[in-house]
Design a protein around this nucleic acid. Structure first.
Lengths: 254, 254
DNA sequence: AAAATGATTCGCCCGGTGTCGAATCGTCGC
DNA sequence: GCGACGATTCGACACCGGGCGAATCATTTT
């Protein structure tokens, strides 16, 4: 005869409702695909997420609403677009834990750890540069007044991601000279010249738009960066390290 | 116009089905209560879990079946009882992550970390000792042949949790002498004298049964152990540390 | 101002699943 | 052996939640 003592401590009592609520959100494949598409911190518009999840716009909208209501996603309105991204580092970590458990853990645990680290260090986002490297480049340009703008709420020289309206960045005269110097040529086009993306893993802005793309293209063309396997993560070559140091005043470690 | 490049890398493609499956399991309050009841690694029979979750036996049985099928729970049959426990460390960690996110994180993150650590170090399980301390005591007794038995598949002196049938532990003559020496008196009763529990957080056996209870009682009576706040975790006092070192050959660090 | 585009809301359908009680199977104790 | 007890299976019921298209709202573009 086993005597069961009172074991309903506080931690056990409060929580099951909240946890099951989160479980309910994770219980849907479309929502999981949305979360995984945002897994590396990108901010994506609703329509892209709908395609990514393979459901209609209306269905996606419903899912996105639920995820934001629950606080797993944040939304930022830019014109007629609404960009969604993960609400915090913890959400990304939760996803990582889940993927670890999901397939009864295959062998590649170490490899996966590296993958995540690499993604945070340097990756592409759409067609431009993101991650710590992307933010470093953006910061470098702002510090030397080659680029000006930002929402100015904190520090015009720090691309910190605020919650204000559009931060309008513009290239200065010195900026154009610098870009010419390193061989960046920006083609004409209807797309906005300078845009920014919120880099979630760093909570900072990185450079996007036509200029952001041209810059990344130049880095890849010159062999300063190279795509790592077939993922979005990129590797800084020795030549790239040198260029970053000389031209951008960035010391890139490993 | 933003060009979205092909970003469906392997990690994103495989996974959403498995993750949503786990989400589906977490989506139910009763199942969450079951998981949280098992959160510290205890192994509990189905009926207790049914009560803990507040549902009927049949419903609980259904839930337990789903959780074990999915590999989140392990089950061990002892006579007419079936003991369920978490399938691994990762499951516990997943639960921790979830509780962190659940209530939009309150302030007490540090405190919770300590709580979990304390539980793993030393806690009560029903009415006996568990956690690292519980396993250490068990090991000490086996090493000195004060207790013999175990399923013998690996090492008779290591209370490793195997998957064999009941491990029958018995107290030796020297064992009784030792117990008398430290003042443990085991009252009569119908309950089995020596039993073991699977200590999940250590994947080892710890001492249960009438003897396990008497041992814990002695430790508490003498002030060698003290309950921490109102939880199941216990604290080793200075006197306790001394006794563990002298009598059990256990060095207890903080 | 009108047309185009992104996003959300609404109404409807349908499949999946939690819940229980009754019945069944297996083990323990007298 | 016979009853007591723990656990699971089965059938029936109710309800929640995902899915889509059409309509609506908001913003940008021509």
């Amino acid at each position: 005869m086993v005597v069961v003592e009172a074991t309903k401590d506080e931690a056990t009592v409060l929580g099951d409702a909240e946890i099951s609520a989160i479980g309910g959100l994770l219980a849907d494949r479309a929502r999981c695909r949305v979360l995984m598409a945002l897994g590396d911190g990108r901010a994506l518009p609703a329509s892209v997420l709908a395609d990514e999840a393979g459901v209609s716009r209306s269905t996606a909208s419903s899912h996105l609403g639920k995820l934001t209501d629950a606080g797993l996603l944040l939304v930022e309105t830019h014109g007629r677009h609404r960009y969604y991204r993960l609400a915090g580092r913890h959400v990304g970590e939760l996803l990582e834990k889940l993927t670890q458990i999901a397939p009864a853990q295959p062998v590649r645990s170490l490899r996966d750890g590296n993958r995540a680290a690499h993604l945070r260090a340097a990756r592409t986002c759409y067609d431009h540069l993101a991650g710590r490297l992307g933010v470093a480049v953006m910061t470098s340009l702002l510090r030397r007044d080659l680029l000006t703008g930002g929402d100015g709420t904190v520090d015009a020289h720090d691309p910190i991601a605020g919650y204000g309206r559009d931060a309008e960045y513009t290239v200065t005269e010195a900026g154009w000279a610098f870009l010419g110097d390193i061989g960046v040529r920006v083609p004409d086009g209807t797309r906005r010249l300078v845009r920014y993306c919120v880099d979630w893993s760093e909570q900072r802005h990185h450079l996007a738009g036509r200029l952001g793309r041209s810059l990344l293209d130049r880095f890849l063309d010159q062999g300063w960066l190279a795509h790592r396997d077939r993922s979005r993560s990129v590797k800084v070559t020795d030549a790239g390290t040198a260029v970053l140091a000389e031209k951008f005043d960035i010391t890139w470690k490993t």
